[in-house]
Design a protein around this nucleic acid. Sequence first.
RNA 1: GGGUCGGUACCCGAGUGGCCAAAGGGGGCGGCCUGUAAAGCCGCUGGCAACGCCUACGUUGGUUCGAAUCCAACCCGGCCCA
Length: 405
Amino acid sequence: MVLGVDEQLAILTAGAVDVIHEAELRKKLERGQPLRAKLGLDPSRPDIHIGHAVVLQMLRRFQELGHVAVLIVGDFTAQVGDPSDRSSTRPALSKEEADANAATYFEQAGRILLPENLEIRHNSEWLGAMGIADVLRLAARATVAQMLARDDFERRYKEGKPISIMEFLYPLLQGWDSVMVRADVELGGTDQLFNNLMGRTLQEQEGQEAQVVLTAPLLEGLDGVQKMSKSLDNYVAITEPPATQFGKLMSIPDTLTTRYFSLASGASPAEAQDFAEQARAGTLSPVEAKRAMARRIVDAYQGEGAGEAAEAEFNRVFKSHDVPTDLPEHTLESAAAVDGQIRLANVLQQAGLAKSNAEGRRLITQGGVRIDGEAITDPDATYVPADLDQVVIQVGRRRWVRIRT
RNA sequence: GGGUCGGUACCCGAGUGGCCAAAGGGGGCGGCCUGUAAAGCCGCUGGCAACGCCUACGUUGGUUCGAAUCCAACCCGGCCCA
């Protein structure tokens, strides 16, 4: 460990919303031993997005200072599912699905984390071995009143919304993870504060030193209002094509430009502040600032220069109104043709540009469909499949497919 | 276990025998504007080779020419009592 305790403290807590407690972290650092910094990941959704990146970058700083990043795959809990947001948000996964997701997860996390100083654990390792008696003993450690202290629970309780007993168990299980891996520090989004604090309680009850809890700000999604999440489809995945990332980043509300820059680009606090200042002063216009932000973020995950290339592509498509260089292709299913003719609405549907035939018809009627740049407005338009070979169909402003027969 | 209120489309929420594929809002989508921003305006928003048919108002069964609406049983949730 080359750096002094004060310097480490400053680096590790930079950007954190909550630090509970700084004095404890200092004490841990003073021992000069590598700390174990835990981060739990939910493998029910495979894509890592730039919102996750905020906390992953914090974790990386621990690694860079010689501490150990302990990633916990919540494979056990993922297999049980989570009733909190009504079935759909977190469906129960099979062991295979959870494993498969976890695998891609780490491949992605690897774009941010260092391969060394990394420990990966699955919580099925210990949770799967617990019997009912163990679970009951764990459940006895917290009270209903304590659980209702979590704002999310309190709100739902007041609103008369259902809260399952199982949900009360989750914070305890996550806290138990901390006990099992002997975490010194736990990272997470601000929405994880309550759960991570539970880890402290349990560790102390087990005679361990309580983990320090650091929370990272939650990044707003593309809509600018709700937090970035896969289920709301308002995210920028760290592995999607650079051009897509750039485009999505350009679509965020102006008010979030500096926030994205400082949270998702991996820029140093000083750099982020400098950027914010320029934007505020008007040295950078809102569009220029946003472009700079988008370039910076694409670079961060795709490599130096990727941002510029993505911007060039962006200009090509949205300034020159050209067709993108890379576009998905769809081979027509000949079976869909009737008497040698195929309906455009049907083509849209099979190419994934419309969810149904009916939606395809609606899009056409509304003037949202173009074939090689020419708007088609007849919902009953039909074609001979061969005539559609190599044709580019555009739906709306940003979706294209090249047709093959 | 008893009482009571409730379960409607992606979400919230009206509708309490035919005029209901179901008001209104949110969200989403398309168009105009534009900087793939915001604000604004207009339109669409169950499915089906489609002026008709099918499916859908928790589930199942019933009453009726006709049910989201009435009846019965069941399932699920909130609250009160035990």
